[in-house]
Design a protein around this nucleic acid. Structure first.
Lengths: 257, 257
DNA sequence: CCCAATTTGTTCGTATGTATC
DNA sequence: AGATACATACGAACAAATTGG
């Protein structure tokens, strides 16, 4: 288990926080692994010489971070738990909630990471995996007829990229690409960037993704990288236009600032 | 404030978790911002009809995620708080604690992101910022004489990259590069990859960084990208050699597997 | 410097819920 | 069904920290 969350500051830590840190360290020292049971509440109360409530708050802290899980009943208790990807995504998402990431910010990351992902996967995927990618593409083979369909297709298209990321054995790359796609989905949906169908974006997306799957199949790493690089640039450009148009349409008073 | 951390599952949530989610939503609905005070414990007890301990556990959950902070005394209370970068780093670090990221994983990310960062900063830095970079470089102008110095220089060199990242106005890029560098520092230190001074790595690092600062100064974006790309490739190669050598030295029995 | 008010922090005893045998 | 072993929740009292008079 990783080191304590807040070791640097010299400020007085609350007792539950101290206990949480102590438990963390305790788990590390003993090399306890996911699935292993921590001592029961009663034992911890004795071990730390603190009241039940304090111990419980400490356990809640670890639980909120996704590091432990507790179950009631006989054989129950507090168990070491591997932080799930969903939990990690949510926790990191909190950090960027106030940050106001722009379309440009997100695409700068996508333009760097996704071509690299494609290049590293070329020639490494089996028929089953390639078929799965084509199956996702099929879900938006027809252009959207209204805003609702447009939104669904947009999400599905991001799923294509998430699925591709899933196929990498680099867990960090996998996480970062999926996280960025998630944030992009949040931004575009919350800012209604998909209010009107954008036929050009749809058509170019389909074309790029088909070419990409072909390149992945025949193991052409350089082509895969290049295709995804162009795909990202194109999508970036169209998204910014969309954003600009929307800004102009709904917030004309911004001109006078 | 971002949506509840665990909305998807249909499993029964603990009451503190429910309360925490409710508070989150409450904050979002009212558009409360960092610094704003939440209702007092007493009010929440009345509002949710629950015991004090339950409310406190809920607040602890939010506090563990870095979303609120509480202070005692008059004028005290629970306050909405912007998740700090340190907290976000620690929380995401938890996710990768069990994941066993390899040197290759980390450098695949660095090779994709750092050249992009360099390119985007070329010509945008003022004299003060360029001087700051050179100051960090000066801290390892002389080759290390022992393992301890080698470790220090290694950390300082990662600080160079963190400082560079700090100069980007893309908060996501900034965070990802610093996070990756942090994880790399953890891995190399914990696995003693810097036990013996590596003169070649030191010399090439210095050379690349000098050239980089020059390219940044004269605004040559393409050159900056290319230099950092080569720098990362070189460092990656040398780190892997170091890793291989160390594996061979300390774990010879791995051959028989 | 102390005192009083306010708000979170901690304790303890008890009771309830839940899963296993 | 009942006993057991756990976490979970409640409530009342007390402690500690901070602010202002």
């Amino acid at each position: 288990m990783p080191p304590a969350t807040t070791p640097s500051r010299t400020e007085r830590l609350s007792r539950p926080q101290q206990v949480a840190d102590a438990i963390k360290q305790w788990v590390m020292e003993n090399g306890w692994q996911p699935g292993d049971r921590l001592p029961s509440e009663t034992e911890m109360i004795a071990r730390f010489g603190m009241a039940k409530g304090t111990i419980r708050e400490a356990v809640r802290i670890l639980e909120a971070q996704g590091l432990v899980k507790s179950r009631t009943g006989p054989g129950g208790g507090v168990f070491v738990h591997q932080v799930s990807e969903e939990r990690a995504t949510a926790l990191l998402g909190n950090y960027f909630y106030f940050a106001q990431l722009s379309i440009d910010d997100l695409y700068q990351i996508r333009e760097a990471l996704e071509p690299e992902l494609a290049a590293s996967l070329a020639g490494k995927l089996d028929d089953h995996q390639l078929a799965a990618l084509e199956a996702v593409m099929a879900s938006y083979a027809e252009p959207a007829r209204d805003a609702e369909e447009e939104r669904e297709q947009h999400i599905a298209s991001l799923r294509f990229h998430a699925l591709l990321a899933e196929m990498s054995d680099n867990r960090l790359l996998r996480f970062l690409i999926k996280f960025t796609a998630n944030m992009l989905a949040d931004v575009t949906v919350s800012r209604r960037l998909y209010a009107q169908p954008n036929r050009e974006l749809w058509a170019s997306g389909i074309a790029y993704q088909s070419r990409l799957v072909a390149a992945l199949r025949c193991g052409d790493s350089a082509a895969a990288r290049q295709i995804l690089r162009e795909h990202m640039r194109g999508a970036h450009r169209l998204m910014c236009l969309q954003e600009a148009e929307l800004t102009q349409r709904f917030l004309p008073e911004i001109d006078i600032l």
